[in-house]
Design a protein around this nucleic acid. Structure first.
Lengths: 107, 107
DNA sequence: CTAATTTGCAACCTGGAGGTTGCTTAAGAT
DNA sequence: ATCTTAAGCAACCTCCAGGTTGCAAATTAG
């Protein structure tokens, strides 16, 4: 059970960056975006954005589809559903701890 | 709205490590643990564990209470509720994108 | 008082994250 | 055929995360 969500760490790590959070926020709208499009508003270089996209891709949050001379990135929901499992596990365990505390005080 | 969850990145980053994930999983049970207790089963040094705890503390997932010669760490739920907001935002936006796609196909 | 336990502090090392620049290759546009 | 745009590749740099070791300080136990 411990090793179950140990594998989630890289997904959390992939989301542990402002730039990547905003990339995901853009891509989860459903419309695929090319690298240049995604780099457009940013202060960072296109290459920097590319690297961030590869990080997201390496944990499955995103995948790329080559279309002509541009490669379009699309969102993939599964990994983020995965880390919700961890968060729910923690919340549930915490809630149980709280209710144990309450019933102890009430006795 | 973009800057709203930009501040969540450090919380994700703090969870982006196997060791810290298991520390949180232990502490969310409600019982405070000293550093030595938390380092007990691990292959890592006590100092390594301490550093990880400080990372979690720096984003508010955990806080320490000095009790005699030992400092006990306790779980704090707020930051993790915070990142759920981001995940829910993404899920919702994605679901809307999907339903738009479905209604487009159906027409 | 002395010995053992729990932390804290500081220095140090290594690898990789995040970013840049420069150049090449592929694909559309004219 | 040429120009332009999109992306890939590779080298490089800097800085910090993650880990270690060694020692000092505080607290508790005997």
């Amino acid at each position: 059970m411990a090793s179950k969500w140990r594998v989630r760490a890289p997904v959390f790590a992939a989301l542990g960056d402002e730039t990547r959070l905003s990339l995901v926020a853009k891509l989860c709208g459903g419309r695929p975006h090319s690298i240049s499009q995604l780099a457009e508003g940013s202060k960072l270089t296109r290459q920097a954005i590319t690297k961030h996209l590869r990080v997201l891709e390496s944990v499955g949050i995103v995948h790329s589809v080559r279309a002509g001379r541009e490669s379009r990135f699309e969102f993939d929901p599964e990994p983020m559903e995965g880390i919700k499992e961890y968060l729910d596990f923690v919340s549930e365990k915490w809630d149980q701890a709280l209710s144990r505390l309450v019933s102890f005080v009430e006795i």
